[in-house]
Design a protein around this nucleic acid. Sequence first.
RNA 1: CGGGAUGUAGCGUAGUCCGGUUAUCGCGCCUGGUUUGGGACCAGGAGGUCGCAAGUUCGAAUCUUGCCAUCCCGACCA
Length: 491
Amino acid sequence: MSKEITARSQDYAKWYNDLVLKGGLADYSAVRGCMVIKPYGFALWENMRDVLDRKFKETGHQNAYFPLFIPKSFLSKEAEHVDGFAKECAVVTHHRLMNDPNGGGVVVDPEAKLEEELIVRPTSETIIWNTYRDWIKSHRDLPLLINQWANVVRWEMRTRLFLRTAEFLWQEGHTAHATAEEAIAETVQMLDVYADFAENFMAVPVVKGVKSPSERFAGAVDTYCIEALMQDGKALQAGTSHFLGQNFAKAFDVKFSNKENKLEYVWATSWGVSTRLIGALIMAHSDDEGLVLPPKIAPLQVVIVPIYKGEEQKAALDARVQVIMDELKKAGIRVKYDDNDNARPGWKFAEYELQGVPVRIALGARDLENNVAEVARRDKKTKESLSLDNLSGQIIDLLDDIQTSMFNKAKEFQQASITKADTFEEFQAILDGKAGFVAAHWDGTAETEEKIKELTKATIRCIPLNNPQEEGKCILTGKPSKERVLFARAY
RNA sequence: CGGGAUGUAGCGUAGUCCGGUUAUCGCGCCUGGUUUGGGACCAGGAGGUCGCAAGUUCGAAUCUUGCCAUCCCGACCA
């Protein structure tokens, strides 16, 4: 028993860390706040990235790459934008090192000070819009639909593996449009892409909504988001899509000639999801035995463990497994045959459960005689004996079933975790009890929102799209309100 | 960045209060053998800047100061 996982009920934060570290997803690094994403964790990210990248291209976007460094002056061109990021920027001030004349190793060469300091991008709106000015002249250049896969740096006070690190990987889409309507449609379209990805690939149900003004992206007119719910009842913002209006076009003077040959500022969007999604995935599905990964993005979907006495039995198993492997691989299933002789079956079972591999096939000499295999599903921790006839077909169906069943389980939990509150007492009792989302009336002011946050640590996660309109009174001030908004404590 | 806790081999730890031979134990690792249906067993072996740096002392894992890292709780945030 080498890899004990702290129980969720005992210490949720420690449980999460155990899964990331012992599940082999990531490690702490020598740099404060930064992590090393290990091969298994990166394989997970690659699968997520590939699906999203395909969806971006299907919706007409192209990938490009913009510089890591942003001239300091760019950042200050959009007033709200700089306000939002100024406190968490890494700044490059010099471009050369030298040997310490006093023999203390390398030091920064004071002669090599940069004329204009460079900011390590916390997000790329400014450098991109500075470029778009040159790219966009006519309505024929629009829409401009660009995405970039990149790393960004935000100097966070307090970091957590995957959920909040000083450097993280993400994609950021930046689009330019001729009209506001078109830009809003793009913003909503990409929100739908994110929601579809979260629900149908990660099996994580989300609420689509709009952020309140105080939770809005710095420089946006409207921020749309998908909000996921973790098993401890805390919400997690899983993706955002911003309608930027003409804010960046004006700041960077990006104009186009319309059909009437009149100059107009373009309309913008930006949207992103990050390696934070991996944190969401872990906290939405996993259990006290380890990770539980949805088949569609699991690095490894099926593992086959042989059980044998002696070389003769092993050879017979090898031959049969080869057939199963070929069939599964032909169907595009990511499968591994673990015939490593150093670890015994029980050890492998525990290890693959920790790593969240959706399906495990155990095959022994006895099984061959009976023409069956023992098939275990990670999500429900059940085992059944399946016939070797058309085993691969049954496995493919099982993977589908696991995917659906994981989503349904999470969806049920989410639905059961949206609670209405009509008084402040109820509101607080729910937060301190089962937590989750609380649907409550709010008078629409930033002051009330701030006061509620102060009193309860809960924030407005979003105003759901297609939110039912109903008359009510703000839970804090009693002022009239026409709809409920979703509050929660959040990551 | 404030408050609290922790830091001894890859992991988990004893020893720290009250300084004193060669730093304890388990897991893991290496070699050989027996094993293999839920984290195997036997035998032998390797592995340590006791978080880092100064200081006190004849002598520091142990005492003092500073620093670093991680975790928890706040403020900030995807």
